[in-house]
Amino acid sequence: ERVRARYDYEAQNEDELSFKKGDIITVLEKDDGWWKGRNGKEGLFPSNYVEELE
């Protein structure tokens, strides 16, 4: 599954994923509120910062 970033997100910890608004992220795992994904790097990000691609 792929999602698009709705906002910029700056990683707060080294296991998190940074991205810019409009970036496409491949979702690897979904957990409550935090998803694991890849966009060149791999890490956790808040699920409310992304939207599913149509």
Rank of each mutant, 00 (worst) to 15 (best):
I24D: 01
F45H: 00
Y9L: 02
A11P: 06
I25C: 04
D23G: 03
D31S: 15
N39E: 04
N13W: 06
G37L: 00
L44F: 15
N48H: 14
Y7V: 09
K30A: 06
L44N: 08
K21I: 11
V27E: 00
W34V: 06
N13Q: 08
G40N: 10
N13G: 11
V50T: 07
L44S: 10
R4K: 10
F45Q: 03
L53T: 08
V27Q: 02
E52I: 12
V3S: 03
K41P: 07
K30P: 02
N48E: 14
K36F: 15
E10R: 09
E54H: 13
L53F: 13
K30L: 05
R2L: 14
R4Q: 07
E1K: 13
W34E: 02
G22F: 04
R4D: 02
G33M: 14
D15C: 14
G22I: 04
F19A: 00
Q12V: 09
E51R: 04
E10K: 11
F19I: 05
S18Q: 04
E52L: 13
D23Y: 03
K41N: 11
S18G: 06
R6Q: 08
D31N: 15
V3H: 08
G22K: 03
E1P: 12
A11G: 10
D15W: 15
D31G: 15
F45I: 05
S47H: 09
E29G: 12
G22T: 02
K21L: 07
T26I: 14
E54P: 13
L17S: 02
L17P: 00
D15K: 13
D15P: 04
R2P: 05
Q12L: 10
D31P: 10
E42S: 10
Y49D: 02
S47W: 10
N48R: 12
F19G: 00
G43A: 02
K30W: 07
F19M: 08
Y7L: 12
G43H: 00
W35I: 07
E10V: 14
V50N: 03
L28K: 03
E14W: 09
R6P: 04
K41W: 08
L28I: 13
D8N: 10
P46S: 06
R4V: 13
W34L: 07
E16Y: 08
I24Y: 10
E52Y: 12
Y49L: 14
G43C: 04
N13C: 12
N48D: 14
E10C: 14
D23V: 04
S18D: 06
A11D: 01
G43Q: 01
L44K: 12
N48V: 11
A5N: 00
K30F: 06
G43I: 00
D32Q: 13
K21S: 09
K36P: 00
Q12M: 12
F19E: 01
E1H: 15
R2A: 09
Q12N: 10
V50W: 03
G37A: 00
P46I: 03
A11C: 05
